[in-house]
Design a protein around this nucleic acid. Structure first.
Lengths: 220, 220
DNA sequence: TACACTATGTGCAAGTTTGCACTCCGGGCA
DNA sequence: TGCCCGGAGTGCAAACTTGCACATAGTGTA
């Protein structure tokens, strides 16, 4: 009821998502899913970009409007998965420690709907290791995003290069912990999406970040 | 096995259906289905064009790019249904009697996939009779198409107005027989899509056209 | 009656997808 | 080696979709 001007907080601008955004997202997803399906049924390298486009219901040209290559399309799976966490991270209060924010953000990833595509990718990766490259890039891109998001928080702190190193080291570590949690989770649970499995994933994320927060001190 | 040059028959130009055609058809169907769903769940008149567009995943403007009104969208259900038969009709040999061609063409309609939407429309029509108008228009449009298709066959026959009357009376009657078959079928079988029901529909179509061909002579 | 409000329908400019015509590149083959 | 071919990418114009502004019509209300 206050007539105050909009408070300057980490306001989540709830974008009503225009029809245009919606359509683009749908197209992007259609392409990604078609690519996955083809990998599943024919195996990596046994289909063309045109096959993906056809299966996705778009033209070859449109495929290239979205992705520079098949690899890039595959990378989108992990990219979208991480984007969920990124979104959560950006919503956390500015004064919260980055590690805590990261922990909270990662909780959103321990969701069957969210992990399912990545889990399948992990499975396929067992067979064909070259699928790992686009995944790697997605994690790297996420690191870059975390860096930017974290940098936003450190307005007014000490200036200079020390902050930059802190920022990057921390962000990189956080991402590494998340990745480690995912890797261990998959090696333990496989493509299992049960609640028990999700609980395991959550705990692994918490543990890895706790390790990070504690400076990886041994308990002995 | 003959090496004859392509016979000059009612050649069906097998259109590979461009991506553009495919997309347009998909959009048209999405709108139609969304409209049906809304009629089903909210009832006729309890939703706006915008609701349909949203449900169909397109903008309001796009809705109007396809249909002039909600009614027109509903009409498309019957329209598409009849289009199937029309297509078959056009494929029949030029020298075959129109009634025989019509009989053959109608056989394609006795297919669960094809009748399903129309059957549902019939069901909804029980409740709200104003749904009948767009359906009527679809049948009428089909008559016009049959007239054109039949006219094509009568090149070189006698000229003058007699042919035109014959053409129109015949075409109109054929359509009426088809419509009668559908009506009786639904009143007998309801929305039943079983093979037995389809057989009934087929027989009704055959019978109605036989009646027409026999000049509606009574057997006694 | 006058006014506010909601829904239909349309014109237009800007954004997106598509078809097509290239260019490049790598593998098979005479 | 030189040629052919199929797939990857790209530029561009045409076709399609969208957002927005505006005109119109029906409804409820002061």
């Amino acid at each position: 009821m206050s007539s105050n001007p909009p408070a300057i907080v980490a306001e989540s601008p709830p974008p009503p998502l225009s029809r245009r955004e919606l359509n683009k997202t749908a197209t992007r997803q259609a392409i990604t899913r078609a690519a996955m399906e083809l990998i599943r049924t024919r195996g990596v390298g046994n289909f063309t970009v045109e096959d993906i486009a056809d299966a996705a219901g778009v033209s070859r040209r449109t495929f290239f409007n979205y992705y520079a290559s098949t690899e890039a399309a595959i990378g989108n799976i992990t990219h979208e998965f991480l984007e969920v966490a990124l979104q959560q991270f950006r919503l956390r209060p500015r004064d919260e420690p980055v590690i805590v924010s990261a922990k909270e953000a990662m909780m959103a990833l321990a969701d069957p709907m969210a992990v399912a595509p990545v889990a399948e990718l992990f499975t396929l990766m067992q067979q064909n290791h070259q699928l790992a490259r686009p995944e790697l890039e997605a994690w790297d891109h996420c690191t870059g995003q975390i860096i930017e998001a974290a940098r936003e928080r450190m307005r007014g702190g000490t200036d200079g290069q020390i902050d930059e190193l802190y920022l990057r080291a921390l962000s990189g570590s956080v991402i590494s912990c998340g990745r480690a949690a995912m890797d261990v989770w998959f090696s333990r649970c496989g493509p299992d999406l049960s609640e028990a499995s999700m609980a395991t994933l959550r705990q692994l994320m918490i543990d890895s970040l706790d390790l990070l927060a504690s400076g990886f001190a041994t308990s002995s």
